[in-house]
């Protein structure tokens, strides 16, 4: 019986040495793993989507390959309503390789605007729940979860229509000029049309104006809306009052009417 016991002892010792060696090399490998996150890129697509591309750099200089890399991001608003969910999966990151993974998050701006129009006019903070998981050294599944605050810049931040200025155009019409200004705080360029209807105090449509906008990201817009309205005794009075109905139309979203009183 001495021989089997001795063999059992030798086998156990060998397995312990292999296990300790594996744990030591896996722990040592961790210091040679480098993770990096690049600058996010925003791209507006033709089908009313905004794509956020986040580059992830993984340099695996350790002794083991990383398996089943999975990144999940869930964007939700301040009320906890889910806006967008995206996941990126990579089957294996081989040992000794430097890999760049592009994580794409698609935000449907049209549905965002439908649900909460403050996204178009107010800067808000979105919550992004990030979960990253991978299988380290084949047998150690590891997961990292965090919540990140993601600032959402409104494309029509501080949208203002000024007081209408009346000028006689001819004997029958008045030219009305309305200053228009906003700041594009969004991470994408804004191009589209703003259509505005001018109503008097009795909800009578006086005129309509349309202007094209082309504003780069993080820049402001200042322009004028021009109306031509028929000259009537009510209109010619100095204290003109009523409201504007504003309609926004861009390749990414449609929104309106937004009612802005004047006078």
């Amino acid at each position: 019986m001495n021989v089997p016991i001795r063999m059992l002892g030798i086998a156990t010792t060998i397995f312990w040495i292999i296990l300790v060696g594996f744990i030591a090399s896996a722990a040592y490998s961790m210091k040679d793993l480098n993770f990096g996150v690049g600058e996010p890129q925003f791209t507006a697509t033709s089908n009313q989507d905004l794509t956020l591309t986040l580059p992830l750099y993984i340099d695996n200089r350790g002794y083991y390959s990383l398996k089943s890399f999975n990144l999940i991001t869930v964007f939700s608003d301040d009320e906890g309503i889910e806006i967008s969910r995206a996941s990126t999966f990579m089957a294996a990151i081989p040992q000794g390789e430097n890999v760049t993974i592009l994580h794409n998050v698609t935000l449907c701006i049209d549905s965002v605007a439908e649900r909460a129009n403050q996204y178009l006019f107010k800067d808000v903070n979105l919550t992004c729940a990030v979960t990253a998981g991978l299988n380290f050294a084949e047998i150690v599944p590891t997961q990292l979860a965090t919540n990140v605050t993601f600032p959402w810049g409104a494309p029509f931040y501080n949208f203002k229509l000024g007081q209408p200025k009346l000028e006689a155009a001819d004997l029958t019409h008045l030219a009305v000029t309305v200053p228009l200004s906003f700041e594009n705080h969004a991470a994408f360029d804004l191009a589209g049309n703003i259509r505005t209807k001018l109503f008097d105090g009795h909800d009578t449509l006086l005129g309509e104006s349309q202007t094209s906008i082309n504003t780069s990201k993080y820049s402001s817009y200042n322009g004028n809306l021009e109306f031509s309205i028929p000259l009537t005794p009510a209109v010619s009075s100095t204290n003109l009052s009523g409201h504007f109905d504003v309609y926004f139309s861009t390749p990414m979203f449609e929104y309106g009417p937004m009612v802005i009183p004047y006078g």
């Binding site: 312990w16 296990l19 047998i139 150690v140 590891t142 979860a145």
Partner: peptide, 19 residues
């Protein structure tokens, strides 16, 4: 602080327990 790390050591746990 603001993230949680979960490491599943079940396989290693099983190997050590068996040894």
């Amino acid at each position: 602080d603001n993230f949680s790390l979960t490491v599943n050591l079940t396989s290693l746990y099983a190997i050590v327990a068996l040894l």
